[in-house]
Nucleic acid binder design. Sequence first.
DNA 1: ATCTTAATTGAGAACAGATGTCAATAACTT
DNA 2: AAGTTATTGACATCTGTTCTCAATTAAGAT
Lengths: 135, 135
Amino acid sequence: MENKRNTEQKRIILGALAAADHPTASELYESVRLKNPRISRATVFRVLGQFADDGVVRRLNLLGSDTRFDARTAPHAHCHCIRCGRVTDVFGGGFEEALAVSHIAGYKVFSSEIEFSGLCPDCLAAEGEGDNRYI
Amino acid sequence: MENKRNTEQKRIILGALAAADHPTASELYESVRLKNPRISRATVFRVLGQFADDGVVRRLNLLGSDTRFDARTAPHAHCHCIRCGRVTDVFGGGFEEALAVSHIAGYKVFSSEIEFSGLCPDCLAAEGEGDNRYI
DNA sequence: ATCTTAATTGAGAACAGATGTCAATAACTT
DNA sequence: AAGTTATTGACATCTGTTCTCAATTAAGAT
């Protein structure tokens, strides 16, 4: 069996996950170490995987980024800045309907994802200022 | 400068890409080797990256899969089987409008992606037959 | 409370996709 | 045909993630 016991490690990881904003596993590992430096990298990856399998968190596969984790379970889309890496949740906009599809093209759908890639407001403003380059 | 010359390697890779169905770089490497065994793995990754940057192909970051490449440039969604790995293009369904968004949440959007994960028709049928398990 | 046992963890090795290095090669320009 | 420079091949390297396995520990049974 698996994921049956309530351990300090899981509690800390879950707390860090709720506090962080679409972190990668490595980012979470760093913040988790501040609470308890004995937690290992493998545990962070393992527990995150279990949480994802259990539907407690969502895995995000964003273009050009390591896997990120989203503690928000309600259906929503994501904007992803290709310059600074920031990820913004997008609720509304009519995307919930698309994400709620349960059958399409003969498939039985278990999860869905809508992702927009571009420049976030801050990076967009910074672009105009000088000789910056994308990416 | 970069991607200026018409080489045999690029021609073969582009041909294999058009013939294959959402292949990974490694799958493409295998099929490309059948045409010319001297082509190296690095060249396949390099050329695919250039094609993606030039908009000739799209990178697909599907859950639990290596990066795949899509030779179809028209906007469409994807279904992805978590059991056999198959990827199906989904044209229509009203997703084009969502994918055509150019500004959202203050972002300037350059690319977008809609992905459904689940069981494809074949795997769905196979599930009923015996004591199979998901993944 | 203590015992039992099986889930969980930590440390590090191992793996794999992807990228970097650099001399050799081959497309274009003239 | 010769020169310039993008491109390639072979291999090293990097890095996110998973695996291994003995040691630990949570939670139910006694």
